[in-house]
Structures are given as structure tokens and as C-alpha cells.
Lab assay of single mutants.
Amino acid sequence: QKTCLICGDEASGCHYGALTCGSCKVFFKRAAEGKQKYLCASRNDCTIDKFRRKNCPSCRLRKCYEAGMTLGARKL
């Protein structure tokens, strides 16, 4: 079983350049394409896991970029 690099849930494949679950794939697409700016209410070090991935979109998006996700990457 492969694990999502963002939240640790079961990965569905390589999306936008990183091994992710469906939830993180859709989140990244919407967040990266959108005009909304996300700000962390804490210290930009929130725990992003399967159960808390929706708590801080700022840290989740940062983790996506750190994992190498880009909109230009093709699905592998």
C-alpha cells in the first residue's frame, strides 16, 4: 500500500508530480489554481495528517509544494 506524501492516507497515484491521495490531489488543484491566499493561524508548522488535513489549508498547500507538486506536472 502506497502512502500520500502530504497527509499519510492511502495514495491513489502520482498526481501533479507527487504520490498523493485523491483528497490532496483535488485540494492542490483547487488551491494552486485559485486566487485565494491562505494564512496559517499558528506558526506555519501545523501537523497535516489524514485526520487534520482540513484544519490548515496554508500548511497543507506548503507541504504540497515541498513534495514537488506543480500544476504543470503530468499525471504518471
Rank of each mutant, 00 (worst) to 15 (best):
N44M: 09
L71M: 15
C46S: 01
Y16V: 02
Q36I: 06
R74M: 11
C7D: 00
N55M: 15
A31C: 10
C64K: 01
G13E: 04
D9Q: 10
K63R: 09
C59Y: 02
Q36S: 09
Y65W: 11
Y65K: 06
K25L: 09
G8C: 04
R52K: 12
H15I: 10
V26S: 14
K35E: 15
C40I: 00
G22L: 07
G22P: 12
A41R: 11
S58V: 07
F27Y: 02
K50L: 12
K63F: 04
C64A: 04
G17Q: 04
A41M: 06
C64Q: 02
K29Y: 07
D9Y: 02
L5Q: 08
P57K: 11
T47Y: 10
A73P: 03
C56Y: 02
L39Y: 14
G8V: 01
C40W: 00
C24Y: 00
C24I: 00
Q1V: 15
C4Q: 00
S23P: 14
G8L: 07
A73D: 12
D49W: 03
Y16C: 02
T3D: 06
L19E: 14
I6S: 02
K25I: 05
Q36N: 08
Q1W: 12
T47N: 10
S12Q: 14
C7A: 03
A41N: 07
P57G: 15
L71C: 11
E33Y: 06
K35A: 09
Q1I: 15
C56S: 01
C4R: 08
L71W: 07
C21W: 02
N55I: 10
C21D: 00
V26T: 13
N44C: 03
L39K: 15
S23Y: 08
C4G: 02
S12L: 14
C24R: 00
A32M: 12
N44F: 07
G22D: 12
K63W: 03
S58A: 12
P57W: 13
G17T: 03
Q1L: 12
N55R: 10
C14G: 08
S12N: 15
A31F: 05
G17L: 02
Q36G: 13
G22A: 12
T20M: 00
A41Q: 09
A18P: 05
Q1G: 14
G72D: 15
T47R: 08
C21V: 01
T20V: 14
L19A: 10
K63H: 03
I6K: 00
Y38H: 05
K35I: 09
I48C: 02
D9G: 06
C21N: 00
K37N: 15
E33N: 10
C4T: 00
T20C: 13
K50V: 10
Y16S: 03
R52Y: 09
G8N: 04
C56I: 01
I6V: 05
A73T: 06
C14K: 06
D45W: 03
K37Y: 06
C46T: 02
V26Q: 13
A73N: 11
S58M: 14
R74Q: 14
N55Y: 10
G17R: 04
K37V: 11
N44L: 05
S12I: 09
L39D: 10
K35D: 08
G8M: 05
A73F: 04
R52W: 04
N44G: 14
S23Q: 09
I48Q: 06
S58T: 05
L19G: 03
C14S: 08
H15T: 14
D9L: 02
A18Y: 01
T20K: 01
Q1T: 15
C40G: 01
F27I: 02
G72Y: 10
R52E: 13
E33V: 09
I48W: 04
K25G: 13
S12M: 12
K50H: 09
Y38V: 09
E33C: 15
I6G: 02
K29T: 14
S58Y: 06
K35W: 05
A73R: 13
G8A: 13
A73Q: 07
E33P: 08
T47A: 13
G17K: 05
A31P: 03
C40N: 01
S23T: 05
G72Q: 15
I6F: 01
T47H: 12
K63E: 13
C7L: 01
T3G: 09
D45G: 07
E33H: 07
T47W: 05
I48V: 12
P57A: 13
S58P: 13
G72K: 08
L39C: 10
G13W: 02
L19M: 12
C46L: 01
S12F: 03
V26I: 14
I48R: 04
C24G: 00
C64M: 08
D49R: 04
G72C: 10
D45K: 15
A73S: 13
C24H: 01
C56P: 01
